[in-house]
Amino acid sequence: MIWLFIKQHLIWISFFIGLLVIWNLICMLDVGFAAVSIGYLNSVVILLFVLFLIARYFWERPNLKNILLHNSLHDVEIYRWDAYTRKVIELYREQSQQQMQVVQKIKFEKNEEQDELLAWVHEIKAPLTAMKLMIEQLEDYRARNQLEQEWLRLHLLVDRQLHQTRLQTLAEDNRLERVRLRTIVFKEIREFQTWCLEKGIGFQIDELEEVVLTDAKWLGFIIRQVLSNAIKYSPHDSEINVIVTRDTQEHILLKIKDVGPGIRPEDLPRIFKKSYTGTIGRETNIATGMGLYLAKRAATSLGIQLYVDSIYGQGTTVVLKFPMQNEYVQTFGM
């Protein structure tokens, strides 16, 4: 408590000592004070000042007790807050570690599930290939045609599941190269040959000599989904037009147009949503709502704009707008 008092009055004490030093210097330099006892004067002044400090000490003692009590409580409070803060930080770290472990566990389980699904898809491809060879050896044309159609449906479902699983890692599973549109489009049309013959659907195709920079495998998947929908909803003995144009900015536009029932205006903004089948899909029960959804996701990942123009009752046109090469550079950092 005494030290606290001294610290609070340190300025007074310093002022007094300085004043005393100056007084002694004056007495030593001024001959008028030669007969005065400097030691006596110093002793009297120091004694008076000490008595003054003692009196002030007892006068301020209650306040000093309150200050010491407040400081001790404050120190305790700071200690408590520090302990609380440390506890909060420890709990936060434990929670972060637990969350990280849960995320890693979910990611590991998801990767395992994805690997198992991919393995199943690859396993089922073998019997599908064998079935295809057995169907081609049938002599009964009608039976062979019906079996080929059912095989095609099964093949498309397995293929869609395979690409849906791989779509999550499309950024790691793509190879950009120069692709001739004619090659991809004709390859996909041949896949649907049996189905088209059964419905009497023909194709009116442009020369398709344009070359685009994209991933051939994923572009084939996108065109496959679009052609599947076009054939599915086209009436018997009709045509599907495949043409290529350019817009005002010289983007290549691949258009696939059918003369089916078209899409209702209220359904058009939602056709790319997952599992959305639309009015016609609900009425016919032939739509899954996944084809255009997966095609849109794949197209977006490749920088391709996929959109649909349709007039209800007059048909539907699906457009693939390919980016320019400099836009690919900006998107993929080539």
Results as ranks from 00 to 15, higher is better:
Trp81Thr: 11
Tyr84Lys: 10
Ser37Phe: 03
Ile89Glu: 10
Ile26His: 08
Asn63Gln: 14
Gln99Pro: 09
Glu90Ile: 10
Val50Asn: 01
Trp81Asp: 05
Lys65Thr: 05
Asn71Gly: 02
Leu91Phe: 07
Val103Ile: 10
Ser96His: 13
Leu68Lys: 07
Gln95His: 11
Leu53Gln: 00
Leu29Thr: 04
Lys87Glu: 08
Leu29His: 04
Val36Phe: 04
Ile78Cys: 07
Trp59Tyr: 12
Tyr79Glu: 07
Trp81His: 07
Asn42Ile: 03
Ile26Ala: 10
Val31Lys: 08
Leu48Tyr: 15
Asn42Thr: 08
Ile46Val: 15
Arg86Phe: 05
Val76Asn: 12
Cys27His: 13
Ile89Pro: 01
Arg93Cys: 09
Leu48Pro: 03
Ile46Gln: 06
Ser72Phe: 06
Arg93Tyr: 09
Cys27Met: 14
Asn63Tyr: 02
Leu64Tyr: 00
Arg61Glu: 01
Gly32Cys: 14
Tyr92Met: 06
Arg93Ile: 07
Val88Gln: 08
Asn71Lys: 01
Leu53Asn: 00
Glu60His: 00
Lys87Ile: 05
Val102Ile: 15
Leu48Cys: 08
Ala83Val: 09
Val44Leu: 11
Arg93Met: 04
Val31Leu: 07
Tyr84Gln: 13
Val76Arg: 05
Val50Cys: 02
Ala55Pro: 01
Ser72Trp: 10
Met28Glu: 15
Ser43Cys: 04
Lys65Glu: 10
His74Lys: 13
Asp75Pro: 01
Leu47Arg: 11
Val31Met: 09
Ile78Ser: 06
Asp75Met: 07
Leu69Pro: 02
Ile67Arg: 00
Ala35Phe: 13
Gln99Ser: 11
Leu51Trp: 03
Ser37Arg: 02
Phe58Pro: 02
Ile38Met: 15
Tyr84Glu: 12
Leu53Arg: 00
Val45Cys: 10
Ser37Ala: 06
Thr85Pro: 01
Gln95Phe: 11
Gly32Ser: 07
Val103Thr: 12
Arg80Met: 11
Ile78Ala: 08
Val45Pro: 01
Leu64Ala: 00
Val103Leu: 11
Leu47Ala: 10
Phe52Ile: 01
Asn42Pro: 09
Gln101Asn: 10
Arg93Ser: 14
Gln101Val: 07
Arg56Gln: 13
Ala34Met: 15
Ser43Gln: 09
Phe33Ser: 02
Val103Phe: 12
Met100Arg: 15
Gly39Ala: 11
Phe52Ser: 06
Ile46Phe: 03
Phe52Asp: 03
His70Arg: 13
Ile54Lys: 03
Arg61Gly: 00
Ala34Asp: 11
Arg56Tyr: 15
Ile67Trp: 00
Leu91Arg: 06
Gly39Phe: 03
Asn71Cys: 01
